[in-house]
Amino acid sequence: MWRRTLRAALRAGLSPGTTGAVAEARAARVGSSRFAGSDSGKAEGPSPGGRVSAELIEHLERLALVDFRNREGVARLQAAIEFAGQLRAVDTDGVVPMESVLEDRCLYLRADDVVEDSCVEALLQNSQWTVEEYFVAPPGNITLPKQSEQDPVTES
């Protein structure tokens, strides 16, 4: 009866109950806020990008145009990477990646009709800076100065 099994599981003390040796090794980790790196039998050597280098920080800041702002930001990324490293424990041999739950659906096709009239006023209204009917951007895509040239990283 399900009742007994459930009670047993509850008494057994909140283990996630996944089967398999690998899962047992990870038992205590689910839902906890400790982000230890992976150390199961399936680990394949040092985690890629395990340490967040200055080069990586700069690379990400440039690609994302978002800055880390302070050491806390970097630590957050470090933790996120380590956390994600837990995925390595899962055996995904032969598993096809799932992009979307809609993979068995077909894409809806729209007829080639012009259905949107000019809405230039509505669009320009929300922009902070327009000139005549253009949006305005600063000149060119000049690259951001390197880290060393910027203001020193501040504490939060």
């Binding site: 729209r110 009709d113 012009v114 259905v115 949107e116 000019s118 809405c119 669009l123 929300n126 009917e133």
Partner: peptide
């Protein structure tokens, strides 16, 4: 060569007044 754009229903125009054939999707709203 099509009447409307690839992913939105705004017109494919050449030499139209600036931003006059731009849908909300094209402007990434």
């Amino acid at each position: 060569s099509s009447n409307s754009k690839l992913f939105s229903g705004s017109q494919v125009s050449f030499l139209a007044p600036p931003n006059s054939s731009v849908s909300f999707f094209d402007a990434s709203l």
